[in-house]
């Protein structure tokens, strides 16, 4: 099985923030959810993959090609959807058709027009007249019109209503149908990923916490709960992060440790809780 993305030990240093030793790979034909709280380094990682910023160390391959040496080839086949769009506000959707044909050698106007119609976008409209949901659809239409083999989405669902989010998930599920196309999807709305993602990469504070199969990710943590008196120093030492309240506590623990404390209630955790309590734990809250 070949990889759409293969990131090895990459790092990036900013004043006050360090992305350190991040490694993961996205096999071809699958969807990876890229998660972590704001400021964890998700967008930095994505920019490094897209060769938009310089890395301090490590290697990145996209479609098995070095992402710097083969920058142009990779961009031809990569579609990006960012929270902020990258078009000029004054462009009409027709203008975009002409401009993109200059950028991409494999640009297909017929598909672009088809997609606009399917997404009910008026080609005469200007970018600035589009709602957030419509801009997302525009970026998807562009990605599909140059036959992208890899779709990288950075927080595409923030600010979208449930209907638009559902449509996006449907689109992604169709996108990977032939087993040749892959999706890297950064989001903090984890309910989007709970079912559809095949793989999860979780980073926190610039460090990799987990990368692998989603089911294994969810299964490697337990949400444990107990009364106040159950929160012994031994329990505390094994908790990744927790929250204490008048009548008890709840927190996240690795599944292997949870069995050491049979007196605690241990249940399957949502992805949200894993992120929240890991954040609390590493930040000493």
């Amino acid at each position: 099985m070949s990889d759409a993305i293969n990131v090895k030990n990459i790092s990036k240093i900013y004043p006050g923030f360090e992305l350190k030793d991040i490694s993961f790979n996205l096999p071809k034909g699958y969807i990876m959810g890229f998660i972590g709280p704001n400021g964890a380094g998700k967008t930095t990682t994505i920019k490094l993959i897209l060769n938009m910023i310089q890395r301090a160390g490590g290697t990145i391959e996209v479609f098995g090609l070095d992402n710097i040496a083969y920058d142009a080839e990779i961009k031809e086949h990569t579609g990006v959807v960012f929270d902020n769009h990258y078009f000029l506000d004054e462009w009409t959707l027709n203008d975009i058709n002409r401009v993109m044909a200059l950028f991409f050698s494999n640009w297909q106007s017929s598909i672009y027009r088809e997609k606009l119609e399917q997404y009910q976008l008026n080609p005469a409209k200007k970018v600035k007249e589009l709602s957030k949901g419509m801009r997302l659809k525009l970026m998807l239409a562009v990605a599909f019109s140059h036959d992208a083999k890899l779709l990288i989405l950075d927080e595409p669902t923030s600010g979208l209503d449930p209907v638009a989010r559902d449509e996006l998930l449907e689109t992604l599920a169709k996108f990977i149908q032939d087993g040749e196309r892959s999706v890297l999807f950064s989001t903090h709305i984890t309910s989007d990923l709970e079912k559809i993602a095949d793989y999860i990469t979780f980073i926190n504070n610039g460090r990799l916490i987990f990368t692998g199969i989603k089911d294994e990710f969810i299964d490697s943590f337990r949400l444990v709960k107990g009364g106040k008196e159950d929160l012994t120093p031994d329990v505390k030492a094994h908790l990744i992060g927790y929250r204490e309240y008048d009548s008890g506590f709840e927190g996240i623990m690795y599944t292997e440790y949870a069995t050491l404390f049979p007196n605690l209630l241990a249940e399957k955790s949502s992805i949200d809780n894993i992120i929240v309590f890991t954040y609390k734990g590493t930040n000493g809250l």
Binding site: G29, A173, Q177, D178, G179, I196, A197, I213, K214
Partner: peptide, 17 residues
């Protein structure tokens, strides 16, 4: 595998299993 995953909106790895 991929049709079933798409229809149910679940991971391809789940249907593979």
């Amino acid at each position: 595998l991929r049709e079933l995953a798409r229809d149910l909106r679940i991971s391809v790895l789940t249907t593979t299993r």
